[in-house]
């Protein structure tokens, strides 16, 4: 029976090996970041924070999908590791707050810098630190080949998407699968002033839609690849992909467009609460705003930050009136209505 002993020895060695690697170190003061942002922005923010405050900023998790980051905060709630959750639209943060996963904090910088308090959580859990607007995008080559000869101008308003010339050529996104798509749907309701008008728009758009993608930004690669001619997505994500990937698409911000508040929040039970607060303050600084705008093409909430070329100033965008509370209260109802109309 000794031979089994060798197997158990081998097993213990492997298990032991992996456990031995499993020690967490305790170091000097630091802040641990979970970021739903792109890699470059996140890295630069961490570096700038360290330079400014001397506190180590450790990026423990960086992934574009805010839902996944929020989910991690939930699963780790009984022994929180993250101090701050940065990026992702405010709804994810609101939902975490409602579940008791967040720490209240209102940064003094809001007042000092004169930032619009409407961009902050009314309950004080999250801080809005950037804005993103919805954009239209179209495949330039396909437009030139198929639509331009008909004398139709490039799509620039939401209603342009209803043109029968785009039948089966529009990529939309699916509110059932992603919160971002829900905001896009809500944008139509707020833009047109009533639920009825908003859903009427969605009903009219439906025949033109080739596909409702699962992710909010699913239209970007598909329009770029010529799978469809037009789509809509978050403007900052579209600009970032277009510029970083040299995608052959044109980005247009239509008037009355919808927008999101990009938020940041402190995780309940954060191991480094003080540093976390400093980091939230830092996010509202011009330095952070510049980094975020330059790499992520997101609009900082404080004015006067230089924007990268090709990005229209936020002030120029014509935004639809937004009602955060109404949007949050109607999630189930509007999703259901949407599903009835589209059959998705």
């Amino acid at each position: 029976m000794k031979r089994v002993g060798f197997l158990v020895l081998a097993m213990l060695l492997i298990l032991g090996g992996v456990f031995a690697a499993g020690k967490t170190e305790k170091g000097p003061q630091k802040v641990v970041i979970y970021a739903a942002l792109d890699e470059k922005t996140t890295k630069e923010l961490a570096a700038a924070f360290k330079e400014k405050t001397g506190i180590d900023a450790e990026v423990a998790l960086q992934i574009e999908q805010a839902g996944t980051v929020a989910a991690r905060i939930k699963t780790e709630a009984s022994n929180p590791r993250a101090d701050v959750f940065i990026g992702g639209n405010s709804n994810f943060h609101s939902e975490l707050a409602a579940g008791g996963f967040l720490e209240k904090y209102t940064s003094p910088v809001v007042k000092e810098a004169g930032i619009d308090p409407k961009l902050m959580d009314p309950d004080g859990y999250w801080t809005g630190w950037y804005l993103g607007a919805l954009c239209l995008l179209y495949n330039e080559k396909l437009y030139n080949e198929k639509v331009k000869p008909l004398g139709i101008a490039p799509p620039s308003t939401w209603d342009d998407l209803l043109n029968p010339v785009y039948k089966g050529q529009v990529i939309a996104s699916n509110p059932a699968t992603t919160g971002g798509a829900y905001l896009m749907m809500a944008a139509q309701i707020f833009r047109l002033g009533s639920e009825e008008a908003g859903f009427e728009y969605i009903r009219k758009l439906h025949p033109n839609v080739a596909q409702y993608t699962k992710g909010a930004n699913g239209s970007i690669p598909l329009v770029a690849q010529g799978e469809a001619m037009v789509g809509f997505a978050w403007g900052h994500d579209t600009l970032k992909q277009k510029i970083q990937g040299n995608l052959p698409i044109v980005v247009v911000f239509p008037k009355d467009t919808g927008f999101e508040i990009g938020a940041a929040s402190i995780v309940k039970g954060a191991p480094n609460l003080e540093a976390a607060k400093k980091f939230i303050d830092f996010l509202l600084s011009p330095t952070a705003g510049t980094i975020n705008a330059r790499n992520g093409y997101r609009y900082p909430v404080r004015s006067g930050v230089e924007l990268p070329p090709g990005v229209p100033p936020f002030e120029q965008l014509k935004l639809a009136p937004w009602d955060l509370k109404k949007a949050a209260d109607n999630v189930d109802k509007w999703k259901k209505k949407w599903a009835e109309i589209t059959g998705m």
């Binding site: 999908q65 699968t177 992603t178 992710g215 909010a216």
Partner: peptide, 24 residues
Amino acid sequence: IMISGDFSVVATEAWMRVEGWADI
């Protein structure tokens, strides 16, 4: 997740519950 289009299957729906709605 890449090519099923509007044809949804359980595995991607489960995935999107997390990615899209943080709904564990």
